[in-house]
Computed example of a mutant assay.
Amino acid sequence: MSTPWTGIFPAVTTKFTEDDRLDIAEMERSFALQLDAGVHGLIVCGSLGEASTLEPEEKIEVLRTALRVAKGRKPVLLTVVEGSTRRACKLAEDGAKAGAQGFMVLPGVPYKSDARETLTHYRTVAKAGGLPVMIYNNPVSYGVDITPAMLGELAADPLFVAIKESSDDVRRVTKIFNAVGDRFQVFTGVDNLALESLAVGAVGWVAGLVCAFPAETVAIYELMKQGRVAEALAIYRWFQPLLDLDVSARLVQNIKLVEALAAGSNDRCRAPRLPLAGAERAAVEAIVAKAMASRPQLPALRAAAE
């Protein structure tokens, strides 16, 4: 059941119409921009996708939209984050029926489960969905830490194939390898720790600002993979003020505004979130304007072996 997930997996945003319905056409356009830039998969309905505001049927509709655009060329993962294991299992079952190629699974937030509860939740949800799982570890935001020792306990189950490591401590990547070897595909989930994580062995990046700058994000990954560290670092340094916008309680509003300015999308959110205004909006606009004025010319990349 193992799968060789590697590379750039955008955590795509969910688009809404002015009357607060799903904007399918804009999602199709935005997802296609990602795939055309060379990303390696898509992840829908995560925290950046405003999962907590979506109805269950809306999550499946967003998934189906991404699957339609991907046309089987790249894997599409559905994020499973629910307040109860029961609801998470139902979403995993429905996602599998709709054609998801896998899941990114979170603990049963907002409850802060202990290790026994967390492991039981993951095993139960994985069994219900029956598809490969990327474990999402984000103790900073969700208060539950899936430690390297806990990963060792999950390693016996072949459904668990990857981890999105977002502990905000790049040292954790090495600790995972030291604990479980290369049993899991390790992805970084913190935009402004991405190059550092790739440098110490991460094989993928669940990215946020990729939604607005997919070519630059893919280039950093491919250059690091090819050992062209100096070229990757030059792009990463240019990208850093933008990447910092991912590490914020306002990451949804931040990234949607950057998408509107740099990729021709919109920054509509679902309430209670509202688009940025005032000084917050002006600060992001200034960061984007500076980045656009100094946007680097990307180096040619060697074709990846098929």
Rank of each mutant, 00 (worst) to 15 (best):
P4I: 13
W5N: 01
T6V: 15
I8P: 00
F9L: 14
F9S: 01
P10Y: 05
A11R: 01
T13S: 09
T13V: 15
K15P: 01
F16N: 11
T17V: 10
D20A: 13
L22C: 11
A25Y: 04
E26I: 00
M27R: 04
A32I: 07
L33R: 13
Q34K: 05
D36W: 06
A37F: 10
V39R: 03
H40W: 07
C45N: 14
S47W: 00
S52K: 03
T53D: 05
E55S: 13
E55V: 04
P56G: 11
E57R: 15
E57M: 08
K59Y: 06
V62H: 03
R64D: 00
R64S: 05
K71A: 15
G72V: 08
R73F: 01
L77R: 03
L78N: 06
V80K: 04
V81G: 15
E82L: 07
E82N: 07
S84F: 03
R86Y: 11
R86N: 11
E93A: 06
A96D: 07
Q101E: 15
G102L: 05
M104A: 12
V105S: 12
P110T: 07
S113K: 00
D114G: 13
R116C: 04
L119R: 08
L119E: 11
T120F: 13
A126R: 01
A126E: 13
V133A: 09
V133N: 02
N137P: 07
N137F: 05
N138I: 10
V140E: 13
V144L: 01
M150K: 09
E153V: 10
L154S: 04
A155Y: 02
A155T: 02
I163C: 03
K164M: 07
S167I: 00
D168M: 10
V170Y: 06
R171Q: 10
N178P: 00
N178C: 10
A179E: 06
F184P: 03
Q185I: 02
V190S: 06
D191S: 08
D191T: 09
N192E: 12
L193K: 07
L198W: 09
G201I: 10
A202P: 02
A202L: 13
V203I: 13
V210H: 01
F213Q: 02
T217K: 11
Y221H: 15
E222M: 01
E222H: 09
L223W: 03
M224T: 15
K225N: 05
V229F: 14
A232S: 12
L233H: 12
A234V: 08
Y236D: 12
R237K: 11
R237I: 10
L243I: 00
S248L: 11
R250S: 12
Q253M: 14
Q253V: 08
N254V: 09
V258K: 06
A260K: 14
A260G: 13
A262P: 00
N266H: 13
R270I: 10
P272Y: 11
L274S: 11
L276P: 07
A277P: 01
G278C: 12
A283C: 12
A289V: 06
A289K: 15
Q297Y: 01
L298F: 04
P299L: 08
A300F: 06
R302Y: 03
R302H: 11
A303F: 01
